[in-house]
Amino acid sequence: MDSVFEEIYEKYHQDIFQFLFYLVRDRHKAEDLTQEVYIRVMKSIDRFENRSSLKTWILSIARNVAIDQFRKEKNKRNIPFSQFDWKNIDFADHQKLPEEIAVQNERIRLLFRCLKMCTVDQQTVLIARFIQDLSIAETAEILGWTESKVKTTQHRALKRLKKFMEAASEKEGGHHE
Protein backbone atom coordinates (compact mmCIF):
# COMPACT_ATOMS: atom_id res chain seq x y z
CA MET A 1 0.00 0.00 0.00
CA ASP A 2 1.22 3.48 -0.85
CA SER A 3 2.95 5.06 2.16
CA VAL A 4 1.49 8.51 1.50
CA PHE A 5 -1.98 7.01 1.36
CA GLU A 6 -1.38 5.04 4.52
CA GLU A 7 -0.14 8.02 6.50
CA ILE A 8 -2.99 10.25 5.43
CA TYR A 9 -5.54 7.54 6.01
CA GLU A 10 -4.33 6.83 9.53
CA LYS A 11 -4.11 10.46 10.56
CA TYR A 12 -6.79 12.32 8.67
CA HIS A 13 -9.22 10.00 6.91
CA GLN A 14 -12.18 10.50 9.23
CA ASP A 15 -11.56 14.27 9.36
CA ILE A 16 -11.64 14.49 5.57
CA PHE A 17 -14.72 12.33 5.37
CA GLN A 18 -16.66 14.18 8.04
CA PHE A 19 -15.72 17.60 6.63
CA LEU A 20 -16.97 16.54 3.19
CA PHE A 21 -20.07 14.85 4.57
CA TYR A 22 -21.26 18.04 6.23
CA LEU A 23 -20.41 20.11 3.15
CA VAL A 24 -22.11 17.88 0.57
CA ARG A 25 -24.69 16.42 2.97
CA ASP A 26 -24.60 12.93 1.52
CA ARG A 27 -22.61 9.84 2.51
CA HIS A 28 -22.12 8.48 -1.00
CA LYS A 29 -20.96 11.80 -2.40
CA ALA A 30 -18.64 12.22 0.56
CA GLU A 31 -17.17 8.78 -0.18
CA ASP A 32 -16.52 9.68 -3.83
CA LEU A 33 -15.08 13.05 -3.01
CA THR A 34 -12.84 11.63 -0.30
CA GLN A 35 -11.25 9.45 -2.97
CA GLU A 36 -10.78 12.52 -5.15
CA VAL A 37 -9.02 14.25 -2.24
CA TYR A 38 -6.57 11.34 -1.96
CA ILE A 39 -5.87 11.52 -5.67
CA ARG A 40 -5.17 15.25 -5.59
CA VAL A 41 -3.09 14.94 -2.43
CA MET A 42 -1.01 12.08 -3.81
CA LYS A 43 -0.38 13.99 -7.01
CA SER A 44 0.72 17.17 -5.31
CA ILE A 45 2.24 16.00 -2.04
CA ASP A 46 5.71 16.87 -3.38
CA ARG A 47 4.57 20.48 -3.49
CA PHE A 48 3.49 20.46 0.13
CA GLU A 49 6.79 21.80 1.51
CA ASN A 50 5.41 22.06 5.04
CA ARG A 51 3.03 24.78 4.04
CA SER A 52 0.79 25.35 7.03
CA SER A 53 -0.01 21.98 8.62
CA LEU A 54 -0.58 18.85 6.59
CA LYS A 55 -4.07 18.59 8.03
CA THR A 56 -5.20 22.07 6.96
CA TRP A 57 -3.51 21.64 3.59
CA ILE A 58 -5.49 18.43 3.01
CA LEU A 59 -8.72 20.01 4.20
CA SER A 60 -8.17 22.96 1.88
CA ILE A 61 -7.90 20.43 -0.95
CA ALA A 62 -11.12 18.83 0.31
CA ARG A 63 -12.82 22.22 0.21
CA ASN A 64 -11.67 22.75 -3.38
CA VAL A 65 -12.91 19.29 -4.32
CA ALA A 66 -16.32 20.14 -2.82
CA ILE A 67 -16.45 23.47 -4.67
CA ASP A 68 -15.65 21.73 -7.95
CA GLN A 69 -18.46 19.30 -7.18
CA PHE A 70 -20.93 22.13 -6.45
CA ARG A 71 -20.07 23.68 -9.78
CA LYS A 72 -20.91 20.43 -11.50
CA GLU A 73 -24.30 20.36 -9.86
CA LYS A 74 -26.14 23.12 -11.59
CA ASN A 75 -28.94 23.65 -9.18
CA LYS A 76 -26.75 23.73 -6.12
CA ARG A 77 -26.90 27.51 -5.86
CA ASN A 78 -27.92 28.88 -2.50
CA ILE A 79 -31.43 30.16 -2.12
CA PRO A 80 -31.22 33.93 -2.46
CA PHE A 81 -31.77 35.42 0.96
CA SER A 82 -34.19 38.13 -0.14
CA GLN A 83 -36.33 35.74 -2.13
CA PHE A 84 -36.67 33.24 0.62
CA ASP A 85 -40.28 32.48 1.39
CA TRP A 86 -40.30 32.91 5.13
CA LYS A 87 -44.01 32.25 5.49
CA ASN A 88 -43.89 28.93 3.74
CA ILE A 89 -40.50 27.83 4.91
CA ASP A 90 -40.55 24.07 4.73
CA PHE A 91 -38.75 22.36 7.55
CA ALA A 92 -41.02 19.35 7.70
CA ASP A 93 -39.43 15.97 8.18
CA HIS A 94 -40.34 14.69 4.73
CA GLN A 95 -37.24 16.38 3.32
CA LYS A 96 -34.72 13.68 2.83
CA LEU A 97 -32.12 13.70 5.56
CA PRO A 98 -29.05 11.50 5.65
CA GLU A 99 -29.75 8.54 7.87
CA GLU A 100 -27.11 9.60 10.40
CA ILE A 101 -28.95 12.91 10.94
CA ALA A 102 -32.49 11.56 10.69
CA VAL A 103 -31.99 9.50 13.85
CA GLN A 104 -30.86 12.55 15.87
CA ASN A 105 -33.02 14.74 18.08
CA GLU A 106 -35.23 17.47 16.70
CA ARG A 107 -32.81 20.34 17.33
CA ILE A 108 -29.95 18.59 15.55
CA ARG A 109 -32.16 17.80 12.59
CA LEU A 110 -33.31 21.40 12.44
CA LEU A 111 -29.77 22.70 12.69
CA PHE A 112 -28.67 20.42 9.88
CA ARG A 113 -31.44 21.82 7.66
CA CYS A 114 -30.70 25.42 8.59
CA LEU A 115 -26.99 24.96 7.95
CA LYS A 116 -27.86 24.57 4.31
CA MET A 117 -29.37 28.06 4.28
CA CYS A 118 -25.94 29.57 4.91
CA THR A 119 -23.59 30.37 2.05
CA VAL A 120 -21.00 27.75 1.14
CA ASP A 121 -18.25 29.84 2.75
CA GLN A 122 -20.29 30.31 5.91
CA GLN A 123 -21.01 26.58 6.08
CA THR A 124 -17.32 25.82 5.65
CA VAL A 125 -16.42 28.09 8.55
CA LEU A 126 -19.10 26.62 10.84
CA ILE A 127 -18.14 23.06 9.98
CA ALA A 128 -14.43 23.72 10.44
CA ARG A 129 -14.78 25.71 13.65
CA PHE A 130 -17.46 23.83 15.54
CA ILE A 131 -17.96 20.41 14.00
CA GLN A 132 -14.30 19.74 13.23
CA ASP A 133 -13.22 21.80 16.24
CA LEU A 134 -10.48 23.67 14.39
CA SER A 135 -9.00 26.95 15.55
CA ILE A 136 -9.52 30.30 13.83
CA ALA A 137 -5.93 30.07 12.56
CA GLU A 138 -6.46 26.57 11.15
CA THR A 139 -9.73 27.61 9.50
CA ALA A 140 -7.94 30.59 7.96
CA GLU A 141 -5.33 28.22 6.53
CA ILE A 142 -7.98 25.99 4.99
CA LEU A 143 -9.75 28.89 3.36
CA GLY A 144 -6.63 30.86 2.51
CA TRP A 145 -8.13 33.82 4.35
CA THR A 146 -6.94 36.15 7.06
CA GLU A 147 -8.02 35.30 10.61
CA SER A 148 -10.15 38.43 10.80
CA LYS A 149 -12.03 37.31 7.71
CA VAL A 150 -12.78 33.98 9.38
CA LYS A 151 -14.07 35.79 12.48
CA THR A 152 -16.30 38.04 10.40
CA THR A 153 -17.68 35.14 8.40
CA GLN A 154 -18.25 33.08 11.53
CA HIS A 155 -20.17 35.94 13.10
CA ARG A 156 -22.33 36.43 10.03
CA ALA A 157 -22.90 32.70 9.67
CA LEU A 158 -24.13 32.36 13.25
CA LYS A 159 -26.37 35.38 12.76
CA ARG A 160 -27.88 33.87 9.66
CA LEU A 161 -28.25 30.47 11.30
CA LYS A 162 -30.02 32.11 14.24
CA LYS A 163 -32.55 33.77 11.93
CA PHE A 164 -33.35 30.54 10.16
CA MET A 165 -33.48 28.51 13.37
CA GLU A 166 -35.88 30.98 14.97
CA ALA A 167 -38.03 31.27 11.86
CA ALA A 168 -38.19 27.51 11.63
CA SER A 169 -39.04 26.94 15.28
CA GLU A 170 -41.78 29.58 15.02
CA LYS A 171 -43.16 27.89 11.94
CA GLU A 172 -43.11 24.48 13.56
CA GLY A 173 -44.63 25.97 16.72
CA GLY A 174 -47.47 27.25 14.54
CA HIS A 175 -48.08 23.76 13.22
CA HIS A 176 -48.45 22.25 16.64
CA GLU A 177 -50.58 24.94 18.24
Partner: peptide, 25 residues
Protein backbone atom coordinates in the same frame (compact mmCIF):
# COMPACT_ATOMS: atom_id res chain seq x y z
CA UNK B 1 -41.78 23.26 19.51
CA UNK B 2 -42.70 26.85 20.40
CA UNK B 3 -40.76 29.81 19.10
CA UNK B 4 -37.29 29.73 20.54
CA UNK B 5 -34.56 32.28 20.82
CA UNK B 6 -31.10 31.00 20.10
CA UNK B 7 -28.02 32.82 21.30
CA UNK B 8 -24.77 32.45 19.40
CA UNK B 9 -23.48 30.36 22.28
CA UNK B 10 -26.49 28.01 21.99
CA UNK B 11 -25.79 27.57 18.30
CA UNK B 12 -22.10 26.94 18.85
CA UNK B 13 -22.97 24.33 21.48
CA UNK B 14 -25.53 22.73 19.21
CA UNK B 15 -23.06 22.61 16.31
CA UNK B 16 -20.57 20.85 18.57
CA UNK B 17 -23.27 18.28 19.33
CA UNK B 18 -23.64 17.34 15.68
CA UNK B 19 -22.95 13.62 15.33
CA UNK B 20 -19.52 12.33 14.46
CA UNK B 21 -19.81 10.90 10.97
CA UNK B 22 -17.40 8.14 10.05
CA UNK B 23 -16.58 6.51 6.77
CA UNK B 24 -17.64 2.90 7.20
CA UNK B 25 -15.43 1.58 4.44
Amino acid sequence: MSKKQFSEKDLQRLLREMPLIEDQR
